[in-house]
């Protein structure tokens, strides 16, 4: 078991070391901020030409989780694509891999600030929000309780910066799953406003929980 099990407003959930969230009750796999097409968008805007393999790398990792968990529903918590043009211009290899992953299951693209509308020519449906009982699933945290992405939270652990889930009373923030995504420290004001204290669950070979927002040690 590489995940960390916890309850959130009546839902039994598992934060996986890979960075995906698993709800075994309904066989839902939730993943945030894939940012597919990021290298293509940076290039289009005259930025650096990054190795154009991040879509393959991201989906390869996602495929591993899908194979391990066999979800019925896969939810992308927004920013599945770096922008809508990137979604349209997706490399055929990546689009093919996506098609294979979505086959035989419900696939939902929630809207994010990078992809505020449904991607065309790609499998799955699209929505602004979903609900799991009392809990909303959306891209950017709103009135809680909710599960969201957007901030790409990271924590420092043993001298390393690691992607992390942040679990507070009202908000559960997911780490970014995309290969080329930066991060925002858990104690950055924007994130601290949402999860002033609670748990960070650091990603890695195994998910490691650690407390955050504790009074400072003297």
């Amino acid at each position: 078991m590489t995940g960390y099990l916890f309850d959130f407003h009546g839902l039994s959930l598992e934060a996986r070391g890979s960075g995906v969230l698993w709800w075994p009750g309904g066989r839902w796999l939730v993943v945030a901020d894939l940012h597919l097409g990021k290298s293509e968008r940076l290039a289009r805007r005259g930025g650096p030409l990054l190795p154009p393999y991040e879509g393959l790398a991201t989906l390869e990792r996602l495929a591993g989780e899908i194979a391990a968990l066999a979800p019925e529903v896969v939810v992308s918590l927004g920013d599945g694509f770096d922008d809508l043009a990137a979604a349209q211009a997706l490399d055929p290899l990546v689009a093919g891999a996506l098609l294979a992953l979505a086959r035989g299951r419900d696939w939902v693209w929630l809207h994010g600030n990078h992809d505020p509308a449904a991607p065309r020519h790609l499998p799955g449906r699209s929505a602004a929000e979903l609900r799991l009982g009392p809990v909303a699933l959306r891209h950017e945290a709103g009135p809680g309780p909710d599960i969201s992405g957007h901030f790409h939270p990271v924590v420092r652990l043993a001298g390393e910066r690691r992607r992390a889930f942040l679990l507070g009373p009202q908000h559960l923030l997911l780490p970014a799953f995309g290969a080329y995504t930066g991060g925002l420290a858990h104690d950055h004001a924007a994130v601290q406003a949402l999860v002033p204290r609670g748990l960070a669950i650091a990603c890695g070979p195994r998910a490691i929980p650690l407390p955050i927002g504790q009074p400072r040690r003297r």
Binding site: S39, E40, A43, G46, L49, L50, P51, P52, D91
Partner: peptide, 15 residues
């Protein structure tokens, strides 16, 4: 110019 990758991804967006 192109990133020099084996996968010629940036033909439209060369630097």
């Amino acid at each position: 110019a192109t990133g020099g990758y084996a996968l010629r991804a940036y033909d439209r967006w060369q630097r």
